[in-house]
């Protein structure tokens, strides 16, 4: 039998100290919807649970002077989709927040936790990538920032060193005329893990694409920033031909595996289809409408 410890620091400093003291035996606990399940199933051996929810910086959701948003690492999903400004500004992120687990799970699960769990299929990560989010990390040696697409390093692994924690994410203010969308493919209609997930963000000048970012989940050891797809779109008219070009690039960028959740061939196909659909949705939002396809 394993004795466990629970700590509830109220400052980032104290949390860093506890994490530094216990090294890999300690783990931040936000909603616990991944961590507690993993420990129960013997998939992770954690001795010290460090509760994130008593630290103000980790629970913060606020708009900064420059229009960017600070999203505390432990802010639960439901808070995002119940926040009109956040939903209007970063719709791809709320698309993801609405489909993680069940309503009950969304009351606990956080975007930061989803990112730190670093699963290849984490639904919020492609949306954060397309919104150019930056991770604010605190540790024994002070603070540092990492672009969200560089955060995950392998399934279940990320750039956080022992003693470090994710404090918050900074999401830049999207320019006018932009929109985003995230959707995933699951064989059922709820309560499932993405076979493939795709996010897209577009900025339009009239019908012309002036900036674009796309991301994919569950097709590589980490969520992917498909930079080439977005780059290819710049200067093109936002139509089906353009989306097909980007979708082709996304399919080529995907390097999925066969597993119990999907096959290589199916995931390749889905990378194409979902990128296309995410771009359509992003375009619709950029033009003030809403996506008409996909979940």
């Amino acid at each position: 039998m394993r004795a466990i410890q629970y700590a509830a620091p109220s400052t980032v400093e104290d949390a860093v100290a506890i994490l530094a003291e216990h090294g890999s035996d300690a783990r931040m606990l936000a909603g616990g919807t991944d961590l507690i399940v993993q420990v129960r199933e013997d998939a992770r051996d954690t001795g010290v649970f460090v509760d994130a929810k008593k630290i103000p910086e980790l629970m913060e959701l606020s708009v900064n002077a420059d229009g960017s948003t600070t999203l505390g690492a432990a802010v639960p999903c439901h808070q995002l989709y119940n926040d009109a400004h956040f939903t209007a500004t970063y719709p791809a992120v709320t698309d993801a927040a609405r489909i993680i687990g069940s309503t009950g799970i969304q009351g606990r699960a956080s975007v930061g936790g989803n990112l730190c769990n670093s699963g290849p299929a984490g639904d919020t990560i492609p949306p954060l990538i397309v919104h150019s989010a930056v991770c604010n990390i605190a540790g024994p040696d002070g603070e540092r920032t990492v672009a969200v697409e560089d955060f995950c390093t392998a399934p279940g692994r990320n750039v956080l060193a022992d003693g470090e924690l994710l404090v918050s994410l900074t999401l830049p203010k999207p320019p006018a005329g932009s929109g985003s969308h995230y959707l995933r493919f699951i064989p059922r209609n709820e309560m499932d893990i993405a076979v493939v997930g795709a996010g897209a963000w577009l900025q339009l000048d009239g019908e012309t694409i002036t900036a674009a970012r796309t991301g994919l989940g569950a097709v590589a050891p980490t969520p992917l920033f498909v930079q080439a797809a977005g780059d290819a779109l710049v200067g093109m008219t936002a139509d089906e031909d353009a989306f097909a070009v980007a979708a082709d690039i996304a399919r080529d960028a995907a390097s999925p595996i066969d597993d119990m959740r999907g096959t290589i061939a199916h995931r390749k196909q889905l990378s194409y289809v979902l990128t296309q659909r995410a771009l359509r949705g992003a375009k619709a939002r950029a033009q003030g409408g809403s996506p008409t396809n996909g979940h």
Partner: peptide, 16 residues
């Protein structure tokens, strides 16, 4: 057996 859970042994939900 790779999918010995109700996450990956996919029974229909109410939405299906």
């Amino acid at each position: 057996l790779l999918n010995a859970s109700l996450l990956d042994y996919r029974m229909p939900t109410a939405l299906d």
